[in-house]
Design a protein around this nucleic acid. Structure first.
Lengths: 196, 196, 196, 196
DNA sequence: AATGAATGAGTCTTCATTCAT
DNA sequence: TATGAATGAAGACTCATTCAT
């Protein structure tokens, strides 16, 4: 009896907060803002979340969980490592970059609650395993040691995200498409694989 | 004389604020924190700066100005484009990454007041000109169009900075040295130039 | 049957609340605390009580009723006034002081809802009647007028309770036993009766 | 330069808070209440005190300091221990009981911040020393051991205060004068001294 | 110019109570 | 009747900035 917690309401809060945090930043978004955006009374926000921090954490954790799942799905939907990599770049990466709000929040000053380093490490792990498999029969990659591949992944991943974030915030003439094209070219040529 | 004394105070404020903003974030640093760190009265802060925002802006603008100057100096201290590029990677980049506080702030949520996109564009411009010069006689680069080179620069630059920031904040096993090594290798091989 | 179950729940609430109010104070105890302690849903609390205030009131009234009953029982279980007094001190008072939680609450800020003055007056009345009976043939007491005896009772009673409360809350080297011993001695000697 | 902290303002806050805490209790008094009562803006309250707790603590500590000073002054203004005791009862105690607000707060639920046990111990110490001096040549007292005298002091002191508090809050027919009369009589007769 | 007290809008959060289910 | 989500007024406190001295 009594009402059950309403998952839809929880999502409403999460969605509104995500937009606001992304647009105005975590610290410039007040709980009252979320209240206004959702039309919910303050109390309800606290029925679903312990506080503002827990909201960001939920946004990031759940958003990231989604991405991770998509990565895993993507990877397992192809046979060879080469095809897997191709899918990562053609399918997974565009999906990530599509969720601009999430990217924005991941790199925001609320980074403290965000533990982006853990996420990046997790992702790197998955892709790194793939690269090793590719590398076995690949002259181009065999010259790279593990550390350098790891570094490369982190730099590329964060570089892509930061570029998207910055280019979005400004009138810099950089589009998501440009970035994807660059990555495709770079990865392709460094692996000696045609990802075109 | 009065001027000298003033400028010293101004720098004291700037330095303290830089450390604090980097360590605790812009929004988690109060003007009172700056007051404590500098030992100056609140009033003095407002004698030198219109407000908190103006302090970040000054930190970023002046820090960036420094970097720009160094880049220009570096570039002009070598003859051939190849040598210039080498110096950029061997001298300029390490200098940038040495100023971790500045990097931190540049990428922070205060990005709003920071106009990082303008800075990146400016820097890109300088390097891009160089790359074009190198590219003229370089097969590796002639395949890249202007847009892609531009994109590459932005992605690498922001990727490096974000990696340094993230790796600093966490226990991710990534050192500044690793990142520099990676960049050297990547740029070297993509230009067909030995930057060893 | 339904009644029995109900009454049990009611007592559960009362008991938990008593402990909590005593330990943390009335204002620092939330209805949610009671909820947690009892394992009952909030709604149930309000099924049995109109609100938080009514809970303290019930604790105090029922606790006090108990004490009054014991006092009456005690008093009627002896023959002479002297024996009655002896029992009050030897049996009743220790029982009162044993219920530290009640004492705590009686003297707490919840005094507002508690009408402690009425209780004290009631108690005084009973004992005063006794004292008068004793006094008739007692030189020591005949010098005291009614008013002063009344005052004495109130001061001693509240003094004992406050001492117990305070000594419990702190490391003051005062034990319940010390207080009882003192009272015994004082009353005994002022009545010229040996209560040893 | 700049304004100096205004001791008068601090006292205004303290006085208003004292009245309010005494009348409505600590937890039922909001900082806004203090604001209203004093006419000061919220911020100013926090310029002078870290928070609500610090305000009670200041009220209690300073009020108590006053009392202690008066006690010491009183005690040193007489020659013999007997005269000192007389003054304590005739002069000091009435002064204490005159500050009903303080008494109220000392015994309130905010007792946690109030450390009344320390105060009582301090006071006991002073008076106990006196009593010992009196006891040397006093038959009535020589039967009491130190522990019991200590207990007596605590019980009487708290009993007096609690009685005053309770009688004030209610229509109980107990006046401060009655209480003082009782104490005078009791102490007098137990010491075999005429304090009339 | 230097100082730091003064200010009050705004922040996050709590919590007793109600009421839909 | 039992339940616990819903509610929103109220709470304590912060802090960038101003301005009296």
């Amino acid at each position: 009896m009594a009402r059950a917690k309403d998952e839809k309401k929880r999502q409403t809060i999460l969605l509104a907060a995500k937009t606001l945090f992304s647009r105005q930043g975590f610290f410039n978004t007040s709980v009252t803002d979320i209240t206004r955006e959702t039309g919910l009374p303050v109390g309800s926000i606290y029925t679903y979340f312990k506080g503002k921090e827990e909201i960001v954490r939920a946004i990031v954790d759940e958003g990231w969980g989604d991405l991770r799942n998509r990565l895993v799905t993507t990877v397992s939907s192809a046979e060879t490592p080469e095809e897997k990599l191709k899918l990562i770049i053609d399918q997974f990466l565009p999906e990530v970059l599509n969720d601009l709000d999430l990217v924005n929040i991941l790199l925001s000053e609320a980074i403290t609650y965000t533990k982006i380093e853990e996420k990046v490490e997790e992702l790197s792990g998955i892709i790194l395993a793939l690269l090793k498999a590719v590398a076995k029969d690949n002259k181009a990659l065999s010259g790279l040691d593990k550390k350098m591949m790891d570094t490369a992944l982190v730099v590329y991943f964060l570089g892509i995200m930061a570029s998207v974030k910055v280019s979005r915030a400004s009138s810099i003439g950089l589009k998501v498409g440009d970035i994807l094209k660059f990555i495709k070219y770079t990865v392709g040529s460094s692996l000696g694989v045609d990802l075109r």
